Simulated assay, not measured.
Amino acid sequence: MPDSIASGGVRHLEIASNYAGQRLDNFLLRELKGAPKSLIYRIVRKGEVRLNGGRVQPDRRLQTGDVLRIPPVRLNERQEQPLRPSPGLAEQLRAAVLYEDRELLILNKPAGLAVHKGSGVDYGVIEALRALRPNEPFLELAHRLDRDTSGCLALAKTAVVLRLIQDAFRIGQVEKRYLALVRDYWNHGPREVNLPLRRNLLRGGERMVEVMDDGKPAQTRFNPVSLFKPASLLEVRIATGRTHQIRVHAAHLDHPLAGDDKYGDAGFNRMMADQYGLRRLFLHAHSLNLPLGGRDIAVSAPLDAELRAVLDHLQPAGHRRD
Protein backbone atom coordinates (compact mmCIF):
# COMPACT_ATOMS: atom_id res chain seq x y z
CA MET A 1 0.00 0.00 0.00
CA PRO A 2 1.11 3.63 -0.46
CA ASP A 3 2.89 5.35 2.43
CA SER A 4 0.41 7.64 4.23
CA ILE A 5 1.11 10.80 6.22
CA ALA A 6 -1.87 12.28 8.11
CA SER A 7 -2.18 16.07 8.43
CA GLY A 8 -5.33 17.64 9.92
CA GLY A 9 -7.67 15.21 8.18
CA VAL A 10 -5.82 15.61 4.88
CA ARG A 11 -3.76 12.62 3.75
CA HIS A 12 -0.60 12.76 1.67
CA LEU A 13 0.18 9.45 -0.02
CA GLU A 14 3.45 8.55 -1.70
CA ILE A 15 2.67 6.24 -4.60
CA ALA A 16 4.41 2.88 -4.37
CA SER A 17 5.70 1.06 -7.46
CA ASN A 18 2.85 -1.46 -7.53
CA TYR A 19 0.40 1.40 -8.25
CA ALA A 20 2.49 3.05 -10.98
CA GLY A 21 0.49 3.33 -14.19
CA GLN A 22 -2.93 3.30 -12.50
CA ARG A 23 -5.37 6.09 -13.37
CA LEU A 24 -5.98 8.63 -10.62
CA ASP A 25 -9.77 8.14 -10.62
CA ASN A 26 -9.44 4.37 -10.26
CA PHE A 27 -6.89 4.80 -7.46
CA LEU A 28 -9.23 7.15 -5.59
CA LEU A 29 -12.19 4.81 -6.00
CA ARG A 30 -10.14 2.11 -4.30
CA GLU A 31 -8.68 4.43 -1.65
CA LEU A 32 -11.99 6.12 -0.79
CA LYS A 33 -14.04 2.95 -0.46
CA GLY A 34 -17.76 3.58 -0.96
CA ALA A 35 -17.30 6.99 -2.57
CA PRO A 36 -19.42 7.41 -5.73
CA LYS A 37 -17.71 8.41 -8.96
CA SER A 38 -19.54 11.74 -8.92
CA LEU A 39 -17.82 12.64 -5.63
CA ILE A 40 -14.41 11.53 -6.90
CA TYR A 41 -14.69 13.70 -10.01
CA ARG A 42 -16.01 16.65 -8.03
CA ILE A 43 -13.12 16.79 -5.56
CA VAL A 44 -10.63 16.40 -8.42
CA ARG A 45 -12.33 19.12 -10.48
CA LYS A 46 -12.38 21.53 -7.52
CA GLY A 47 -8.65 21.04 -6.96
CA GLU A 48 -9.06 19.41 -3.56
CA VAL A 49 -7.02 16.47 -4.83
CA ARG A 50 -3.45 17.52 -5.68
CA LEU A 51 -0.64 15.59 -7.33
CA ASN A 52 2.86 16.77 -6.45
CA GLY A 53 1.32 20.05 -5.28
CA GLY A 54 -0.61 20.83 -8.47
CA ARG A 55 -4.04 20.28 -9.98
CA VAL A 56 -4.55 17.08 -11.89
CA GLN A 57 -6.99 15.43 -14.30
CA PRO A 58 -8.86 12.25 -13.27
CA ASP A 59 -7.32 10.23 -16.12
CA ARG A 60 -3.73 11.06 -15.12
CA ARG A 61 -1.62 7.94 -14.61
CA LEU A 62 0.27 7.80 -11.35
CA GLN A 63 4.04 7.26 -11.16
CA THR A 64 6.25 5.79 -8.45
CA GLY A 65 7.15 8.48 -5.92
CA ASP A 66 4.27 10.81 -6.80
CA VAL A 67 2.78 12.51 -3.73
CA LEU A 68 -1.00 12.62 -3.74
CA ARG A 69 -3.04 14.92 -1.51
CA ILE A 70 -6.44 13.49 -0.58
CA PRO A 71 -8.90 15.72 1.34
CA PRO A 72 -11.07 14.40 4.17
CA VAL A 73 -14.24 12.95 2.65
CA ARG A 74 -17.47 12.34 4.55
CA LEU A 75 -19.58 9.50 3.23
CA ASN A 76 -23.17 8.89 4.20
CA GLU A 77 -24.13 5.67 5.94
CA ARG A 78 -25.45 3.98 2.82
CA GLN A 79 -22.27 4.68 0.87
CA GLU A 80 -20.06 3.41 3.69
CA GLN A 81 -21.58 -0.06 3.46
CA PRO A 82 -19.07 -2.25 1.62
CA LEU A 83 -20.21 -4.23 -1.40
CA ARG A 84 -21.08 -7.80 -0.48
CA PRO A 85 -21.63 -9.85 -3.64
CA SER A 86 -24.41 -12.38 -3.28
CA PRO A 87 -23.38 -16.04 -2.91
CA GLY A 88 -24.79 -16.66 -6.38
CA LEU A 89 -22.72 -13.91 -8.00
CA ALA A 90 -19.63 -14.96 -6.07
CA GLU A 91 -19.96 -18.54 -7.33
CA GLN A 92 -20.72 -17.32 -10.86
CA LEU A 93 -17.49 -15.30 -10.94
CA ARG A 94 -15.43 -18.15 -9.46
CA ALA A 95 -16.77 -20.51 -12.12
CA ALA A 96 -16.06 -17.92 -14.84
CA VAL A 97 -12.25 -18.00 -14.36
CA LEU A 98 -10.62 -19.24 -17.57
CA TYR A 99 -7.00 -18.45 -16.74
CA GLU A 100 -5.10 -17.02 -13.78
CA ASP A 101 -1.50 -16.47 -12.77
CA ARG A 102 0.32 -13.95 -10.55
CA GLU A 103 -0.11 -11.17 -13.12
CA LEU A 104 -3.29 -11.86 -15.07
CA LEU A 105 -6.89 -12.98 -14.64
CA ILE A 106 -9.17 -13.86 -17.57
CA LEU A 107 -12.88 -14.50 -17.11
CA ASN A 108 -15.71 -15.79 -19.26
CA LYS A 109 -17.89 -12.79 -18.39
CA PRO A 110 -21.58 -13.64 -18.13
CA ALA A 111 -24.03 -11.69 -20.30
CA GLY A 112 -26.00 -9.06 -18.41
CA LEU A 113 -23.19 -8.21 -16.00
CA ALA A 114 -21.51 -4.83 -16.53
CA VAL A 115 -17.73 -4.67 -16.27
CA HIS A 116 -17.91 -1.68 -13.90
CA LYS A 117 -20.49 0.42 -12.08
CA GLY A 118 -22.09 3.52 -13.56
CA SER A 119 -25.13 4.63 -15.59
CA GLY A 120 -27.58 3.21 -13.08
CA VAL A 121 -25.48 0.10 -12.35
CA ASP A 122 -24.41 -0.14 -8.68
CA TYR A 123 -21.55 -2.53 -9.31
CA GLY A 124 -19.86 -4.51 -12.03
CA VAL A 125 -17.28 -7.26 -12.46
CA ILE A 126 -14.38 -5.19 -11.17
CA GLU A 127 -16.16 -3.99 -8.00
CA ALA A 128 -17.43 -7.50 -7.23
CA LEU A 129 -14.00 -9.08 -7.71
CA ARG A 130 -12.31 -6.47 -5.51
CA ALA A 131 -14.86 -7.21 -2.79
CA LEU A 132 -14.30 -10.97 -3.16
CA ARG A 133 -10.51 -10.56 -3.21
CA PRO A 134 -9.76 -7.90 -0.56
CA ASN A 135 -6.10 -8.96 -0.29
CA GLU A 136 -5.40 -8.52 -4.00
CA PRO A 137 -3.06 -5.47 -4.07
CA PHE A 138 -3.86 -4.51 -7.67
CA LEU A 139 -6.78 -5.48 -9.90
CA GLU A 140 -7.79 -3.45 -12.96
CA LEU A 141 -9.79 -4.01 -16.12
CA ALA A 142 -7.42 -4.33 -19.06
CA HIS A 143 -10.21 -3.69 -21.61
CA ARG A 144 -14.01 -3.56 -21.79
CA LEU A 145 -16.94 -5.68 -22.90
CA ASP A 146 -20.49 -4.40 -23.29
CA ARG A 147 -22.87 -5.42 -20.52
CA ASP A 148 -24.89 -7.71 -22.81
CA THR A 149 -21.82 -9.33 -24.39
CA SER A 150 -20.36 -12.48 -22.85
CA GLY A 151 -16.90 -13.96 -23.16
CA CYS A 152 -13.20 -13.32 -22.58
CA LEU A 153 -12.44 -10.40 -20.28
CA ALA A 154 -8.87 -9.75 -19.08
CA LEU A 155 -7.96 -8.10 -15.79
CA ALA A 156 -4.44 -7.10 -14.83
CA LYS A 157 -3.05 -7.95 -11.40
CA THR A 158 0.01 -5.71 -11.78
CA ALA A 159 0.51 -2.24 -13.23
CA VAL A 160 3.24 -3.59 -15.54
CA VAL A 161 0.90 -6.11 -17.17
CA LEU A 162 -1.86 -3.50 -17.41
CA ARG A 163 0.44 -1.25 -19.44
CA LEU A 164 1.62 -4.16 -21.60
CA ILE A 165 -1.97 -5.13 -22.49
CA GLN A 166 -3.08 -1.56 -23.12
CA ASP A 167 -0.03 -0.94 -25.33
CA ALA A 168 -0.73 -4.17 -27.23
CA PHE A 169 -4.34 -3.11 -27.84
CA ARG A 170 -3.21 0.32 -29.01
CA ILE A 171 -0.82 -1.05 -31.65
CA GLY A 172 -3.13 -3.86 -32.76
CA GLN A 173 -1.23 -6.86 -31.34
CA VAL A 174 -4.17 -8.30 -29.38
CA GLU A 175 -6.32 -10.82 -31.25
CA LYS A 176 -9.89 -10.98 -29.96
CA ARG A 177 -12.52 -12.99 -31.82
CA TYR A 178 -16.28 -12.95 -31.35
CA LEU A 179 -19.13 -15.22 -32.37
CA ALA A 180 -22.25 -13.36 -33.52
CA LEU A 181 -25.58 -14.65 -34.78
CA VAL A 182 -27.12 -12.32 -37.38
CA ARG A 183 -30.44 -12.14 -39.21
CA ASP A 184 -30.96 -14.03 -42.48
CA TYR A 185 -28.67 -16.08 -44.70
CA TRP A 186 -25.26 -14.39 -45.01
CA ASN A 187 -24.23 -14.37 -48.67
CA HIS A 188 -21.32 -11.90 -48.48
CA GLY A 189 -18.53 -14.40 -47.80
CA PRO A 190 -15.68 -12.90 -45.77
CA ARG A 191 -16.41 -9.19 -45.48
CA GLU A 192 -14.41 -6.28 -44.08
CA VAL A 193 -16.26 -3.12 -43.05
CA ASN A 194 -14.48 0.23 -42.72
CA LEU A 195 -17.11 2.73 -41.64
CA PRO A 196 -16.57 5.55 -39.10
CA LEU A 197 -18.79 5.62 -36.02
CA ARG A 198 -20.11 8.43 -33.85
CA ARG A 199 -21.51 7.80 -30.38
CA ASN A 200 -23.99 9.59 -28.11
CA LEU A 201 -26.30 10.63 -30.93
CA LEU A 202 -29.82 11.15 -29.58
CA ARG A 203 -32.47 9.21 -31.53
CA GLY A 204 -35.98 8.88 -30.10
CA GLY A 205 -34.75 9.78 -26.64
CA GLU A 206 -32.05 7.09 -26.69
CA ARG A 207 -28.31 7.59 -27.10
CA MET A 208 -27.06 5.65 -30.10
CA VAL A 209 -23.93 4.90 -32.09
CA GLU A 210 -24.28 5.49 -35.84
CA VAL A 211 -22.25 5.30 -39.02
CA MET A 212 -21.28 8.91 -39.74
CA ASP A 213 -18.66 10.43 -42.04
CA ASP A 214 -17.28 12.56 -39.21
CA GLY A 215 -17.08 9.66 -36.75
CA LYS A 216 -14.04 7.77 -35.49
CA PRO A 217 -12.47 5.11 -37.75
CA ALA A 218 -13.85 1.62 -37.15
CA GLN A 219 -12.84 -1.63 -38.85
CA THR A 220 -14.70 -4.93 -38.50
CA ARG A 221 -14.04 -8.26 -40.25
CA PHE A 222 -16.92 -10.73 -40.62
CA ASN A 223 -16.32 -14.35 -41.58
CA PRO A 224 -19.16 -16.89 -42.01
CA VAL A 225 -19.06 -20.02 -39.84
CA SER A 226 -22.53 -21.63 -40.12
CA LEU A 227 -25.21 -20.48 -42.56
CA PHE A 228 -28.92 -21.07 -41.98
CA LYS A 229 -32.01 -19.60 -43.60
CA PRO A 230 -33.31 -17.58 -40.63
CA ALA A 231 -29.90 -16.66 -39.20
CA SER A 232 -26.15 -17.02 -39.74
CA LEU A 233 -23.29 -17.57 -37.30
CA LEU A 234 -20.28 -15.36 -37.98
CA GLU A 235 -16.83 -15.06 -36.48
CA VAL A 236 -15.95 -11.40 -36.03
CA ARG A 237 -12.62 -9.63 -35.49
CA ILE A 238 -12.29 -5.93 -34.77
CA ALA A 239 -9.23 -3.82 -35.52
CA THR A 240 -10.67 -0.95 -33.46
CA GLY A 241 -12.65 -1.03 -30.21
CA ARG A 242 -15.48 1.46 -30.70
CA THR A 243 -18.63 1.32 -28.61
CA HIS A 244 -21.20 -1.15 -30.08
CA GLN A 245 -18.98 -1.47 -33.16
CA ILE A 246 -19.95 -5.02 -34.18
CA ARG A 247 -23.65 -4.40 -33.59
CA VAL A 248 -23.75 -1.17 -35.61
CA HIS A 249 -21.67 -2.47 -38.53
CA ALA A 250 -23.75 -5.67 -38.75
CA ALA A 251 -27.01 -3.67 -38.71
CA HIS A 252 -25.60 -1.35 -41.39
CA LEU A 253 -25.13 -4.43 -43.62
CA ASP A 254 -28.81 -5.29 -43.01
CA HIS A 255 -27.82 -8.30 -40.86
CA PRO A 256 -28.57 -7.10 -37.31
CA LEU A 257 -27.53 -9.27 -34.39
CA ALA A 258 -30.01 -11.67 -32.85
CA GLY A 259 -31.34 -10.39 -29.53
CA ASP A 260 -30.10 -6.83 -30.11
CA ASP A 261 -32.81 -4.61 -28.64
CA LYS A 262 -30.96 -1.39 -29.51
CA TYR A 263 -29.91 -1.75 -33.16
CA GLY A 264 -31.73 -4.93 -34.11
CA ASP A 265 -34.98 -6.08 -35.69
CA ALA A 266 -37.80 -6.47 -33.15
CA GLY A 267 -39.66 -9.02 -35.27
CA PHE A 268 -36.54 -11.13 -35.78
CA ASN A 269 -35.79 -10.96 -32.06
CA ARG A 270 -39.33 -12.15 -31.21
CA MET A 271 -39.01 -15.05 -33.65
CA MET A 272 -35.63 -16.06 -32.17
CA ALA A 273 -37.12 -15.91 -28.66
CA ASP A 274 -40.34 -17.78 -29.47
CA GLN A 275 -38.90 -20.47 -31.77
CA TYR A 276 -35.34 -20.85 -30.51
CA GLY A 277 -35.42 -19.65 -26.91
CA LEU A 278 -32.96 -16.77 -27.36
CA ARG A 279 -33.58 -14.06 -24.78
CA ARG A 280 -30.21 -12.29 -24.81
CA LEU A 281 -27.85 -10.69 -27.30
CA PHE A 282 -26.01 -13.34 -29.31
CA LEU A 283 -22.54 -11.82 -29.15
CA HIS A 284 -19.75 -13.72 -27.43
CA ALA A 285 -16.00 -12.95 -27.19
CA HIS A 286 -14.92 -16.54 -27.73
CA SER A 287 -11.13 -16.18 -27.91
CA LEU A 288 -8.40 -13.84 -26.73
CA ASN A 289 -4.68 -13.85 -27.52
CA LEU A 290 -2.51 -11.48 -25.47
CA PRO A 291 1.21 -10.85 -26.10
CA LEU A 292 2.81 -10.15 -22.72
CA GLY A 293 6.46 -9.24 -23.10
CA GLY A 294 7.82 -12.41 -24.62
CA ARG A 295 4.98 -14.79 -23.76
CA ASP A 296 1.60 -15.22 -25.42
CA ILE A 297 -1.54 -16.05 -23.46
CA ALA A 298 -4.24 -17.69 -25.61
CA VAL A 299 -7.63 -18.39 -24.02
CA SER A 300 -11.00 -19.50 -25.38
CA ALA A 301 -14.40 -19.19 -23.70
CA PRO A 302 -17.15 -21.73 -24.39
CA LEU A 303 -20.64 -20.57 -25.32
CA ASP A 304 -23.16 -20.68 -22.50
CA ALA A 305 -26.01 -23.20 -22.49
CA GLU A 306 -28.57 -20.76 -23.96
CA LEU A 307 -26.44 -19.91 -27.00
CA ARG A 308 -25.47 -23.56 -27.59
CA ALA A 309 -29.14 -24.54 -27.50
CA VAL A 310 -30.00 -21.91 -30.13
CA LEU A 311 -27.34 -23.28 -32.48
CA ASP A 312 -28.44 -26.87 -31.85
CA HIS A 313 -32.01 -25.95 -32.85
CA LEU A 314 -30.83 -24.15 -35.97
CA GLN A 315 -28.46 -26.92 -37.02
CA PRO A 316 -30.84 -29.47 -38.57
CA ALA A 317 -32.28 -26.99 -41.08
CA GLY A 318 -28.99 -25.35 -41.95
CA HIS A 319 -25.92 -25.82 -44.05
CA ARG A 320 -22.61 -26.09 -42.22
CA ARG A 321 -19.56 -24.27 -43.51
CA ASP A 322 -16.30 -25.18 -41.77
Rank of each mutant, 00 (worst) to 15 (best):
V115R: 04
V115M: 11
V115E: 00
V115D: 05
V115A: 08
H116M: 10
H116E: 03
H116Y: 12
K117E: 15
K117F: 07
G118I: 12
S119D: 05
S119I: 07
G120I: 13
G120L: 10
G120T: 11
G120C: 13
G120D: 13
V121K: 14
V121W: 15
V121S: 06
D122G: 11
D122A: 15
D122I: 11
Y123P: 08
Y123G: 10
Y123M: 12
Y123Q: 14
Y123I: 14
G124H: 09
G124P: 07
V125S: 10
I126M: 03
I126E: 01
I126Q: 00
I126L: 03
I126C: 00
E127P: 02
E127T: 10
A128V: 10
A128R: 07
A128L: 06
R130C: 04
R130I: 03
A131V: 07
A131I: 06
A131Y: 08
L132F: 08
L132V: 11
L132E: 02
L132H: 09
L132A: 12
L132Q: 12
R133Y: 13
P134N: 08
P134L: 13
N135P: 06
N135D: 15
E136A: 05
E136V: 06
P137R: 12
F138Q: 07
F138K: 05
F138H: 06
F138Y: 14
L139Q: 10
E140M: 13
E140Y: 04
L141S: 07
A142S: 11
A142Y: 01
A142R: 06
A142H: 07
H143V: 00
H143W: 00
H143P: 00
R144S: 06
R144H: 07
R144E: 08
D146S: 01
D146F: 01
R147Q: 07
R147E: 04
R147L: 08
D148W: 01
D148K: 02
D148M: 01
T149P: 05
T149H: 03
S150F: 02
S150V: 01
S150I: 02
G151M: 09
G151I: 11
C152E: 15
C152N: 13
C152I: 15
C152V: 15
C152T: 11
C152S: 12
L153R: 10
A154R: 00
A154H: 00
A154N: 00
A154T: 01
L155C: 05
L155V: 03
A156H: 04
A156M: 03
A156D: 03
A156P: 05
T158F: 04
T158P: 02
T158S: 12
T158N: 02
A159N: 11
A159C: 08
A159K: 09
V160T: 12
V160S: 10
V160Y: 08
V160G: 00
V160R: 14
V161W: 02
L162W: 12
R163H: 10
R163T: 10
R163W: 02
L164H: 15
Q166H: 06
D167L: 02
A168I: 01
A168D: 05
A168T: 04
A168F: 05
R170N: 14
R170K: 15
R170F: 10
I171E: 15
I171C: 15
I171D: 15
I171L: 14
G172N: 12
